[in-house]
Nucleic acid binder design. Structure first.
Length: 333
DNA sequence: AAACATCGCAACCGCTCCAAC
DNA sequence: CGTTGGAGCGGTTGCGATGTT
């Protein structure tokens, strides 16, 4: 693979950018726009590599950057997104307008990680530290997957899709039935009932879908990740700010049992538009449909052809991606 | 006031992905 | 289908700022 290190060519400046360099880069980009980064240094009269120029623009000079401290809301969102996405900083940044992946990564490593640790939450798993320790002392329990061995049931769920209007209203546009394998269904909707290894798998499952997220038509799509994220936040918004610990500690279920409302903020809806709400007890099925809606939309955009998209991603094949893990190692509960 | 430790941020490095050829 | 090179990502490093002794 062609290595294009900035070290290859001599005389390229490294280290901090001077105001003069910033000025050159800024005026070039504002005049010409972003094209080929590799040609930027030459055309802008900079002794830097294109990669360095790109980084400087993206992380510092871009006019749409927010700057300043992270708000409490941003902090909460980062934690929740990290719970679902892991260290996928670029994807997390895509959900936070004006913030860069580098900025969020730094904020996480320097501040949020410690904050969570103080609260007794493992920043990697987002589970209580004590619970993790207990899990570690019982290796067998960490490798249990319910419904996995030899099960080939399908789940019949209704697939619905919606348009998000400019005014924030949702209009149902179609309805059709779909099947999804039970093992995948269970796993997708109850990830917290699985071990940390499986959560890693879960992230692998999410990945095929969410990397398209930035390309979604804002008016049509619903975030699979967002939906999962907001499931994690199923808590009364009025006391959300102080409830992160209790939220985490109830993670053995994907629904907080002491709450009666589940909320999903749809991608494309404004911050202030009202969240969709469900009465958890009575309308769980509706809630569960949403992640599948996203998958369905993804299919339409990309690779759906067979009519049973989820069967293309059985857990059995994903387990192979875990180092040393084998489906036979897992036990049914 | 000086030395040392810690923190936070900007930038770099090495890797993967992917389009073009 | 293999190769190449650009773009982008995440982990890591280095350094200035700030805090502590």
């Amino acid at each position: 693979m062609g290595r294009h290190s900035c070290n290859v060519k001599q005389k390229l400046r490294k280290g901090l950018w001077s105001p003069e360099e910033d000025g050159k880069l800024c005026s070039y980009i504002t005049k010409v726009g972003i094209g080929s980064w590799s040609s930027v240094p030459k055309l802008a009269g900079l002794q830097r590599c294109g990669k360095s120029c790109r980084l400087r623009w993206m992380n510092y000079l871009r006019p749409d950057l927010k700057r300043g401290m992270f708000s409490q809301d941003e902090e909460d969102r980062i934690i929740s997104l990290h719970e679902v996405l892991g260290n996928r900083w670029a994807q997390i940044a895509a959900q936070l307008p004006g913030r860069t992946d580098n900025e969020i990564k730094n904020f996480w490593n320097s501040s949020l990680k410690k904050k969570l640790m103080k609260q007794g939450i493992d920043p990697n798993t987002h589970k209580p530290l004590r619970e993790n320790q207990e899990n570690c002392t019982n290796k067998n329990s960490m490798l249990q997957i319910p419904h996995l061995n030899g099960m080939d049931q399908s789940f019949h769920i209704t697939n619905r899709s919606f348009n998000s209007e400019a005014n924030g209203q949702l209009t149902e546009t179609s309805s059709e039935d779909q099947f999804v394998s039970k093992q995948v269904f269970d796993f997708l909707f109850n990830p917290n009932e699985y071990s940390s290894e499986l959560l890693a798998l879960y992230q692998k499952i999410v990945r095929p879908y969410d990397h398209h997220q930035s390309e979604f038509d804002e008016n049509l799509s619903y975030g699979f990740c967002s939906a999962k994220l907001e499931q994690g936040q199923m808590t009364d918004q009025t006391d959300f700010g102080s409830s992160s610990t209790s939220r985490m500690s109830s993670s053995s279920s994907n629904i907080c049992s002491n709450q009666n409302t589940a909320r999903i903020r749809m991608k494309g809806m404004s911050e202030h538009s009202e969240d969709l709400s469900w009465d958890v007890e009575n309308k769980m099925e509706s809630l569960f449909q949403y992640p599948y809606i996203e998958i369905k939309n993804e299919e339409l955009n990309s690779r759906h052809s067979s009519g049973d998209f989820m069967s293309n991603y059985p857990l059995s094949s994903l387990t192979e991606e875990l180092s040393g893990a084998n489906l036979d190692d897992f036990q049914q509960i």
